[in-house]
Design a protein around this nucleic acid. Structure first.
Lengths: 227, 227
DNA sequence: CGAGCGATTGAAAAGACTCAACCACCGTGG
DNA sequence: CCACGGTGGTTGAGTCTTTTCAATCGCTCG
């Protein structure tokens, strides 16, 4: 493992938790969770889990950002999802009993807690609200993937890039988008050369600006039109 | 509605049910289900539900086949899933409280039972096995969509067609694939002209044969290589 | 018989990919 | 301090794939 254990983050006082799926936990549950979970610091690009391996629990992002991707054709990654602070990653894999079909890795330095499968499933069984939250999450994710399939299958690379930039602008809130060209190409599903040329066009059209690898969306409206 | 109510199909003796998510129901539950559900006959291409409308229950396919699709760019449909006998369609939408983001329609004449949202959620609450089955379904579906995204984003139309033919061959078991070129194009995510040209090539290469709209896979191995 | 729809073909144009080369930046070790 | 190597970013040119548009064909249904 690349990441290392780090100072314990208390669930009880954790502000991130309050806005997460775990917001409904009761005191007893929080205490138990606090005792059994493991907190780790991840450097940029450290893996959380890898396609084909067996799920042993879920990952709770205290701070930082994570990409979820599959290894596609000739080892080219395809990003299917990005998660940030407050999101829980990897619970989808716990129910089927199958190995992961996706991998996850950090996009930047992150603090992430690990909750074992047994603990998570126990909480799911006992806590109705948590269970409903998880079901809701699964449904939303399923819906968003149906839309993403359509996006990928029907749209040109230019249109896909516009959509992804909108997704990422939202994901990064105020801050500029901080993705390598490679990762961006792996999200849009194109060659990095093509991606770079399109970014250049968007830049010339005043739709985005960029400094180094950081991209800022200037004209959201125009991106929506392309998309 | 295009479909019409039809002779009641008894859940108790239903062979289809025994291999479905509802296999775990107990006698009391079956009786209740039997009383409250509605059975209908659907002609080919009749809609089950439509993107944007509010989910009111789930659809249980007694016999027949169903496509699940989104309306994409310029009204072009994108098929994201196909379901057949024994599958329950539409339960993904019940948990989020949001309108459908996909539509569903029959691919052929089908008999399909409708179970109300309240009944379905009640059974979910009370029946642990059903609940686990549903969670498992959701997870599997999520996994398969992640792979499908990668497929669509990274592969050429030719490769995508090969994959889809493999999926459909499995779906149709022994029988020939019975899809309009339009639907096939809407699954692969391409123009129907392109689809037709590629089918012709596959046919010339002896990989498939076709009579009218029916397609038979002759050489699965070669399709796997393309894919 | 004629309308209309799905299937098919052809030709031209647009889009995207590949390959090859080059640049720019950054951290390392001499 | 600077040369070095490596990685990620950028550009150009040629090629292949895919789309688009237009036209034709064949069949079914009223």
């Amino acid at each position: 493992m690349n990441h290392c254990n780090t100072k314990h983050i208390s669930c009880e006082t954790c502000v991130t938790r309050k806005n997460s799926l775990f917001s409904s936990l009761e005191n007893g549950e929080i205490t138990h969770l606090d005792q059994s979970k493991k907190c780790s610091f991840y450097k940029k690009n450290d893996p959380l889990f890898i396609e084909g391996s067996i799920p042993r629990g879920v990952f709770c992002i205290h701070d930082g950002k994570v990409k979820v991707f599959t290894r596609g054709k000739e080892g080219k990654d395809q990003i299917v999802y990005v998660a940030k602070q407050g999101e829980i990653v990897g619970f989808r894999a716990l129910f089927s009993g199958d190995p992961y079909v996706v991998s996850a890795a950090t996009l930047e330095e992150s603090n992430i807690c690990f909750v074992s499968k047994a603990d998570f499933l126990d909480m799911m069984d006992n806590n109705h609200t948590l269970r409903n939250g998880v079901m809701k999450e699964l449904s939303k994710e399923l819906a968003s993937r149906a839309e993403f399939i359509t996006e990928m299958a029907q749209k040109s690379v230019r249109e896909r890039l516009a959509s992804i930039l909108l997704i990422l602008q939202d994901f990064y809130e105020d801050e500029p988008i901080n993705f390598t060209r490679e990762d961006l190409a792996n999200f849009v599903g194109t060659a990095s050369e093509t991606l770079i040329r399109l970014l250049k066009e968007f830049k010339e059209d005043g739709i985005i600006s960029s400094q180094g690898r950081k991209i800022t969306v200037l004209d959201k409206g125009r991106l929506l039109q392309i998309h």
